[in-house]
């Protein structure tokens, strides 16, 4: 399945009031969730000194840089500079904001303004995100599919593999059927580990 959206994380890995690193293409992302639950994906760079905003902290509806505490609001604009508490920060201090949606427990990000909504993966839930030290092509080859959303079998279970280019390597976001019990989820996690070992062994062979 093709889509303009890139899966960058599983929703359950970014709890309320936290920030996490991610990427889209070659761009590093700060993916963060506000206190009210709003998800956002920004360029992972504080305009002040270039520190990664994914190392930052969330208070209320703002993300703050860990370095000097500059804090940024929903639109990516700088709202507060702690060393100059009386200053209204100029409009030009702004973090690039990416289109970001949450659907079926997946955080999707796009460059530009995509026409459609992210894929509907009803009936599935996020299991794990696994980093694989091999290009996305190697994963597509194993699964025999194309595009970022692959409906495949892992052992006896029909799962969804979301394949994301992560630099030269890959992030695999694995979705399991909602009906799976704990033992099946554990078995799927083990199967994904085995799959990664095989793919990486192939890639380095």
């Amino acid at each position: 399945m093709q889509t303009d959206w890139t899966p960058v994380a599983l929703s359950h890995d970014i709890p309320v009031a936290s920030a996490a690193p991610g990427r889209i293409g070659d761009t590093a992302l700060a993916i963060w969730r506000s206190a009210s639950g709003r998800i956002a994906a920004w360029s992972d760079r504080c305009p002040h000194r270039g520190m990664r905003l994914s190392h930052g902290y969330v208070r209320g509806e703002r993300l703050s840089c860990i370095y000097h505490g500059w804090s940024y609001g929903e639109d990516g604009g700088c709202k507060r500079i702690p060393a100059h508490p009386d200053l209204t920060p100029p409009e030009s201090i702004r973090v690039p904001v990416f289109a970001c949606r949450e659907a079926s427990g997946v955080v999707w990000v796009a460059e530009g303004q995509p026409a459609g909504a992210p894929p509907d993966l009803a009936g599935f839930r996020g299991l794990r995100s696994l980093h694989i030290a091999a290009a996305t092509g190697a994963i597509a080859e194993v699964f025999g599919g194309d595009g970022p959303v692959l409906r495949v079998k892992l052992g006896p279970v029909a799962v969804i593999a979301l394949v994301q280019a992560f630099g030269d390597e890959t992030m695999l976001h694995l979705m399991a059927p909602e009906s799976c019990d704990l033992a099946t989820l554990d078995a799927l996690s083990d199967a994904a580990e085995a799959l990664r070992r095989n793919i990486e062994a192939e890639a380095t062979a």
Binding site: P15, G22, R128, L130, H131
Partner: peptide
């Protein structure tokens, strides 16, 4: 540690 979401939450 970017590729390890559960480790990140455990450290938190």
């Amino acid at each position: 540690l970017d590729p390890y979401p559960s480790i990140r939450l455990w450290m938190r």
